Amino acid sequence: MKNIFLLLFAFMLTQLSFGQYKYDASEKHPFGQPNPEAPEQIKDFEPMIGSCKCTSITRKQDGSWNDAENIIWNWKYIMNGTAVQDETLKPDGAHSGSIRQFIKDSSRWYVHWYSAKTPSTKLPVWEGTKKGNKIVLYKEQKAPNGTDGYFRLSFYDMSKSGYKWIGEWVDKTETVVYATWKINCKQEN
Rank of each mutant, 00 (worst) to 15 (best):
F5A: 15
L7Y: 00
L7W: 02
L8G: 11
A10Y: 05
F11P: 04
L13N: 02
L16R: 05
F18P: 05
D24R: 08
E27K: 13
E27S: 14
P30H: 01
G32R: 01
E37T: 14
A38L: 05
E40K: 15
Q41G: 02
K43M: 11
D44G: 12
D44E: 07
M48P: 03
I49V: 15
I49N: 09
S51G: 03
C54D: 01
I57N: 00
Q61L: 13
Q61Y: 05
D62M: 10
G63A: 11
S64Y: 04
S64F: 05
N66Y: 07
E69W: 06
E69I: 15
I71L: 12
W73H: 12
N74F: 07
W75P: 00
I78C: 04
N80L: 03
G81D: 08
T82S: 12
T82D: 03
A83P: 04
D86E: 14
T88M: 10
K90V: 10
P91M: 12
D92H: 09
G97W: 03
S98P: 08
S98G: 04
R100Q: 04
I103W: 05
K104Y: 00
D105S: 15
R108K: 15
R108D: 00
W109T: 08
Y110E: 06
V111M: 01
W113R: 07
Y114A: 14
Y114D: 11
T118E: 08
P119S: 10
S120W: 07
K122E: 06
V125H: 01
V125Y: 05
W126M: 14
G128L: 07
T129N: 02
G132H: 03
K134E: 14
K134P: 07
L137K: 06
L137A: 02
E140Q: 13
A143G: 03
T147M: 13
G149D: 04
Y150E: 10
R152K: 15
R152L: 09
S154C: 09
K160V: 06
S161A: 14
Y163P: 04
W165C: 00
W165P: 03
I166A: 09
I166M: 08
E168C: 14
E168R: 09
W169P: 11
K172L: 15
T173D: 13
E174H: 03
E174A: 15
T175I: 05
V176G: 01
Y178C: 14
A179I: 01
A179G: 05
T180G: 11
T180S: 11
I183E: 07
N184G: 02
C185S: 08
K186R: 14
N189S: 11
